[in-house]
Design a protein around this nucleic acid. Structure first.
Lengths: 196, 196
DNA sequence: ATTTTGATAGACCGATCTGTCTATCTTGGC
DNA sequence: GCCAAGATAGACAGATCGGTCTATCAAAAT
């Protein structure tokens, strides 16, 4: 998501664990978990190898921590961004498309980390995929909640339909690079969901 | 897609190149292009390493051939499956959801190979991503054509919206495993596009 | 002042990766 | 019958992977 304004305290030394996790958030999202090796994480976070393995017993543990943290940050950002837009009278579920548009325009946008992890893992990778499902469950709940606030009939179904639209928009934005057009199309779809 | 009935001629010896490409189609789709090494392709296609490098100068060339062939086969299957379903009177763009349902139910379903390749490649991987875009362009044309046949107003826009729904449905089916429900939801969305 | 804690750099290990090379074998065209 | 083309098995190279280990050092706690 668009960067969440660097805190004013600025440039804290940051613990080894924090630096590692920050590097993982940036590199794993940009290049995929398979595309980034431990050595690169270590180099870019300026940490010794043993320090890394002290905090994360294996790469899989770092991947899991990356996904959990990405989930927390993305959901917090999305929820806040939606709240400000959906507060205006008359706006509703379709404001989700406006939030997506700002995400798609971020210079480091590389699709959804949790959709991406599906492509990178086997069906047997229960850990990563459980986190991904959990993320989407959270997003679904958020969408259903918005549908309910909007007074849409059958909010559960509306939320499911909206999630399909959101996922499709993310993929199309990543594939075409035309985030604005995709967001506009998604908005039309979301409006038609709201109007039954 | 669901397997396309083995030809009756059956068990032709098959040239080295064909066996390599068949292995690539199966393994790259199931495990990703990064998750399958040349050695495994060679072993499972029963071919010598030098024979492989005779037909494909590098792994990247095999990946490209895999994507091109996957595109050909999937589009042919999808187009044929849609044709039979959309031939019935009254059915239309929403028949796409029925075709998707049968795909989602295939035992080896692992999402869309071209969405997956996005997660596996850098933005600088122009070759793979160009093939992926080409695939989606073809699918978009097909959807627009169906919208036009159905007499939907603004078929170009309807096609774009339908493609968002299709992409979203693929991702949701892969994420949840609930292909039937996802297809039903996608059908509702496609109908609302048609009745726009 | 001494001890403990945790971080440092970097060598090292075995496995696996893509790609090259040799050396042998099979086979079809003449 | 002979020869050229292409396939075979598999060793090999150089890089990179995840992960372990040693040895040094800085600083905080006792």
């Amino acid at each position: 998501m668009p960067k969440t304004t660097a805190s004013a305290k600025a440039e804290k030394p940051a613990s080894a664990r924090e630096r590692i996790l920050e590097s993982a958030l940036r590199l794993f999202y940009a290049h995929g978990t398979r595309g980034v090796g431990i050595d690169r994480i270590i180099a870019e976070s300026g940490v010794a190898k043993m320090s890394f393995y002290n905090h994360f017993p294996s790469k899989a543990d770092l991947v899991a921590a990356f996904l959990e943290e990405r989930h927390r940050r993305w959901m917090a950002w999305f929820e806040a961004a939606l709240k400000t837009r959906a507060a205006k009278p008359g706006t509703n579920l379709s404001a989700v498309a406006d939030v997506l548009r700002t995400w798609f325009a971020a210079p480091d946008f590389h699709g959804c980390a949790f959709i991406n992890i599906l492509a990178e893992t086997e069906r047997t990778s229960t850990r990563e995929r459980a986190i991904a499902r959990g993320h989407k469950d959270g997003l679904l709940e958020l969408l259903i909640g918005q549908a309910r606030k909007d007074g849409i009939a059958r909010p559960a179904e509306a939320g499911r339909l909206a999630l399909i639209v959101v996922e499709g928009a993310i993929v199309r934005a990543e594939m075409t690079g035309e985030g604005d057009r995709v967001a506009a199309d998604a908005k039309a779809l979301l409006k038609s969901i709201a109007n039954g």
